[in-house]
């Protein structure tokens, strides 16, 4: 049981924050939303099944690695994607540390924007529990509801947040060459030419 708890903590901290980035990238390669859902599910399930999970600390890179292998496997089997698209997937690398940090912010901001869209009672109960830190019993008393009704509202709020997050695609703004290539480019100051522009903008 402790093992499961530790693994959950790892999965929530290292893997899940990159769910939207994974979906965003896969959406460039997989056209149907069914394929997209299935592939995201499968990648996350494989990530969960990692044996030596404690050694994985770059969730984004790890998810993309699994996704790439999965897509290559499927491409060989069913030809659902072209190898050109796989090359596209290879191109998409990430600046991990920086993105992780920016991510935590945008996620919180997203949540803040999303909550007002919850159904009224559901949102209200959620706010009382999470922001005002009232217990389920206190909320039940205050609103003259049963504890189980309060629980239903909270569960619904969580479910709606989960689903909305699932649909989220972190947009990829422009192509990203590997961090090292970018760093090199900075060092050569000046002399920007049109050709070097295209180098960074072809996708």
């Amino acid at each position: 049981m402790h093992e499961i708890r530790a693994k959950l903590d790892w999965f929530e901290a290292v893997i899940l924050p990159h769910q939207a980035a994974l979906r965003g990238r896969l959406s460039r390669i997989l056209r149907s939303s069914q394929d997209l859902d299935d592939t995201v599910s499968e990648v996350l399930a494989r990530a969960w099944s990692t044996e030596d999970w404690a050694r994985v600390d770059h969730g984004r890179a790890y998810l993309f690695h699994i996704a790439r292998n999965l897509i290559i496997d499927e491409a060989r089997r069913d030809k659902i994607v072209s190898f050109e698209q796989i090359a596209d997937l290879e191109l998409l690398q990430s600046h991990t540390i920086l993105e992780d940090q920016l991510h935590a912010r945008s996620e919180l901001r997203w949540l803040q924007d999303f909550l007002p869209q919850l159904p009224r009672q559901c949102r209200h109960v959620f706010h009382m529990r999470r922001v005002q830190e009232k217990s389920m019993r206190e909320i039940a008393e205050e609103l003259s509801l049963s504890v189980s009704t309060v629980e239903k509202h909270l569960a619904k709020a969580v479910l709606l947040i989960m689903r909305a997050r699932w649909q989220r695609e972190e947009t990829i703004l422009g192509p990203r060459t590997a961090g090292t290539a970018d760093a090199r480019a900075t060092d050569e100051s000046g002399h920007r030419s049109e050709s070097s522009d295209t180098r960074y903008s072809s996708s």
Binding site: L8, F11, E12, I15, L16, Q19, S41, L44, A45, W48, E107, L108, L111, Q112, L115, F126, R130, V131, V158, L159, I161, M162, R165, W166
Partner: peptide, 16 residues
Amino acid sequence: VAFARAESAWKDSERL
């Protein structure tokens, strides 16, 4: 995976 998604939605809301 479903549980981790639910739990993280729950935990993240604490930071609000």
